[in-house]
Amino acid sequence: MTALTSAKADVSGTQSPKQSRKPTTAGASRRRALGKRGLEPWFYLAPAFIVLIALLGYPIFQLINVSLYDYRQAQVSGKAPLQFTGLENYQKLVADPEFWSVLGNTVLFAGACVVLTLLVGTSLAVLATRLRPWVRTALFVVSLGAWATPAVTGSAVWLFLFDPTLGLVNKALVSIGLTQFNGYSWTYDKWSAFGLVASEVVWCSFPFVLVTVYAGIQAISTEVIEAARLDGASMPRIARSIMLPMLRPIVMVVTIQSIIWNFKIFSQIYIMTNGGGIAGQNLVLNVYGYQQAFAASLYGLGSALGVIMTALLMIVTLVYLRILKRTGEVL
């Protein structure tokens, strides 16, 4: 949207002699264009704005609002007086070592999921371009099956597979002679539990990356590759200097999507580690927020967590966009 409006503004900007004298930034020219055109652009934007404000703006407004109050079940149902406490909920969180360890868990866990999803998805996409059509179709059908599986069902099935006594995985491991896996609990150790959940997450999210990146590779016109080849470029060089830059917008989109999805993981952790693991060792921000806001009825504190989560995601995404912009790519 930004690219579109600034492009429009530039077109109108060229008509103004004032602007042609000094090179202006897109922002400055847009502001002038706004002044000239008055309310017209807003009028076109109105339908989208109204929907966004109703579906996004209002909930976020209430989220921030609730996070500034001492808002528990008693306050909601009118038994206790509502008290504005300012940033107290945030102070409580910042002072709580559990919050920091949960935040650390979330960053590590989500980071690992993002990297693994992208690696698996991209490598399979590259592989898919070199497969025979029927093998490729089979690969796509299988991965779309994983993608289509609801998170709750997928988690339950994975949990069955990795059950200490009855699970197929342990049985298979024992049958090939690894007897230490007899009755081995995958969810007992913190990192093995995270590993188990992460593999389930990668399993159900790599197909999106696969499909998108594959489509991106197919969209690169063969002429470009041919031209590079005629110029004597090697295959790795083509991959690095031709294909990757052309795929960049797509890789960027799937990365941002993955970051957002994986930071927001809830069902998999909640189901596979039984609500956060032994003594809460596998809590991530979203499950922690649910525990505080709904299970413990501390809506104010839970909202503060939600606000922090939203802010973090926006910062991560903005930083990522900024880095990409600096390297010369625009969305």
């Binding site: 209430q62 921030i64 609002n65 109050y69 808002y71 909601v76 009118g78 509502l82």
Partner: peptide
């Protein structure tokens, strides 16, 4: 401005008398 607006209106509560 939004923060100012926030402090002016409290989150909803119900009357459960």
């Amino acid at each position: 401005l939004a923060a100012l607006a926030l402090t002016a209106c409290a989150p909803p509560t119900s009357n459960n008398a």
